[in-house]
Design a protein around this nucleic acid. Structure first.
Lengths: 164, 164
DNA sequence: ACTGGTTTGACCTTTACTGACCTTCGTAAT
DNA sequence: ATTACGAAGGTCAGTAAAGGTCAAACCAGT
């Protein structure tokens, strides 16, 4: 099942692919018109699919001559590990812990950056699911710590192994 | 006696038989409607009849435009799956559960038979360690179940993706 | 009666989409 | 310069549309 948001995401990615430079500039209302949706849906797509975790940055300007600029973030190979740790231990401190969704987004980015293969992404991703704890009596603090360790370990394993 | 679940199972299998590709996509509520049952019965059928043991995998997405995808898996991979389950649930009953050593042996075999790459073996292996639980208050029964689920999920991920 | 598979429904989580209302900023009129 | 207007884009809460979970009730065969 493909949603409208998926189409819009696709469209933007295709634009990015052929764009000279690492960015594209669009008009929100124009795009909304093109896809026959309300303008705020564009924001929805941007905020759910073009996040930093997925390797994108969005800038915009309001008012007359306003625009939205979508950029790809550079690969930053060295920083990958740090970024992961930040992911794991930022929201983590708020007691509610690392959000699986964000983690998976980050994973997909590693895949898109070709640091890991599709299969590797799936393998690692299979651990980032709330439902692995279903029916098990485990405290949420423990759940969280476990996820962090597992993901860290797995990533460490690939990063140590070198190129795929 | 033939139950409703049997009919639903049949129906899905027939769909799969004529489907181009090794999968079918359905809407849970639609199917429930067709068979005049509650939606959750579809989950029941899927979880009891379309398991990896029987050669199937199920993926899904929630929310608007959600769907359920039922896939066939390759017989070769199915064998592997069964072996893993045997590994996980044989010694498992002896309270101390799946021995990591045995699991690692199994992993190595997968690698030697070229079903997984070296990197994949490293990733999966990084989870098969007692020390991931160090200092965490988790019952040994839970630890055990968790390891099984994690390993199963990871292998499932490989099955889904097919040959490397 | 017991047992195990089946069926159901109440409640939950996730995702997509919409619309009313708000903020920002260029620019044309004063 | 100042102001007023209009043309962007932003926010957020609400609605709807999926699918997931779990435990209780319900049979059927022994």
């Amino acid at each position: 099942m493909i949603t409208l948001s998926d189409y819009i995401e696709d469209y933007l990615k295709k634009l990015l692919a052929v764009a000279p430079g690492q960015y594209v500039e669009i008009q929100r209302s124009e795009l909304a018109e093109k896809f026959q949706c309300v303008p705020s849906q564009i924001n929805y797509v941007l905020s759910t699919r073009f996040t930093p975790e997925r390797g994108y940055l969005v800038q915009s300007r309001r008012g007359g001559r306003g625009y939205i600029k979508v950029m790809r973030i550079d690969p930053l190979y060295q920083k990958i590990w740090e970024e992961l740790q930040k992911q794991l231990y930022s929201a983590a401190e708020k007691e509610y812990g690392c959000e699986m969704v964000k983690l998976r987004d980050f994973l997909m980015r590693l895949y898109e950056e070709r640091l890991i293969s599709r299969r590797e992404a799936e393998i690692i991703g299979s651990v980032m699911r709330e439902d692995i704890f279903n029916g098990l009596k485990i405290g949420s603090k423990e759940k969280n710590e476990l996820i962090k360790r597992l993901v860290s370990n797995m990533l460490k394993a690939v990063l140590q192994e070198g190129s795929m």
